Computed example of a mutant assay.
Amino acid sequence: MDTAPMTANGYAQLKEELRWRQQEERPRIIEAISEARSHGDLSENAEYHAAKEAQSHNEGRIGELEDLISRAEVIDISKLSGTNVKFGATVTLADEDTDQEKIYQIVGDQEADVKAGRISISSPIARALIGKEEGDSIEVQAPGGAHGYEIVSVKYI
């Protein structure tokens, strides 16, 4: 069984989503199914079929969350330090072509959100960064071609 590395914040978000799906969403869907059943013929009842589909989706996600939580390897970033890039690092990169800076934190796969500056440990950029230090240059193979970046800073916050 593979472990799933994640930050304490990511773990807390998964636990909260699981609680919400089990304690709030599940009863709401059961109520919607019950309400739709009371309308009669189930074979032509769109509300019933929609509610059953929502139930299937919710139960599938609950199973997925329970699996992730059971395999979670929570890494406390506040206890990490050093100059090498590893899981949990917040890295400032400078694009070698445009000098534009980007800041990314390396997190677990299920926590990744590029718009929020969190990239997955398994992403091409993160894989290129792991083990590097401030001042190092990396080249990342992206769908649009290779991109070069210089590591400006590495922090653990």
Rank of each mutant, 00 (worst) to 15 (best):
D2Y: 06
T3E: 10
P5C: 10
M6A: 06
M6G: 08
T7I: 08
T7F: 02
N9A: 14
N9H: 07
G10F: 11
L14R: 01
K15M: 15
L18G: 00
W20G: 02
Q23F: 07
E24H: 11
E24A: 13
E24W: 05
E25N: 05
P27S: 07
R28E: 13
R28P: 09
I29W: 11
I29F: 07
E31M: 08
A32K: 10
S34T: 12
E35M: 03
R37E: 14
R37N: 13
G40F: 04
D41K: 14
S43Y: 11
E44Y: 08
E44P: 00
N45I: 08
N45L: 03
N45V: 07
N45Y: 06
A50Y: 13
A51P: 09
E53C: 00
A54H: 11
A54V: 06
A54D: 15
Q55V: 01
Q55C: 01
N58R: 11
E59F: 07
E59P: 03
G60H: 09
G60R: 13
I62S: 00
G63F: 05
G63R: 12
E66N: 14
S70G: 00
A72C: 02
V74L: 02
I75F: 05
D76P: 00
I77P: 04
K79D: 08
K79Y: 05
K79W: 04
K79H: 09
S81I: 05
S81E: 14
V85T: 11
A89R: 05
T92S: 07
T92F: 02
T92W: 04
T92G: 02
L93N: 09
D95R: 07
D95L: 05
D97K: 12
D99C: 01
D99G: 00
Q100L: 12
Q100E: 14
K102Q: 12
K102M: 09
I103N: 08
Q105W: 06
I106R: 11
G108F: 02
D109K: 14
Q110A: 13
Q110Y: 12
A112F: 08
V114C: 00
A116F: 03
A116D: 05
A116N: 12
R118E: 13
I121N: 12
S122W: 04
S123G: 10
L129C: 03
L129D: 09
K132S: 13
G135V: 02
D136G: 04
D136Y: 01
I138Q: 09
E139F: 04
V140I: 11
V140F: 06
Q141G: 05
P143C: 02
G145A: 00
G148F: 02
E150P: 02
V152E: 07
S153G: 06
V154G: 07
V154T: 13
K155R: 15
Y156W: 12
Y156P: 12
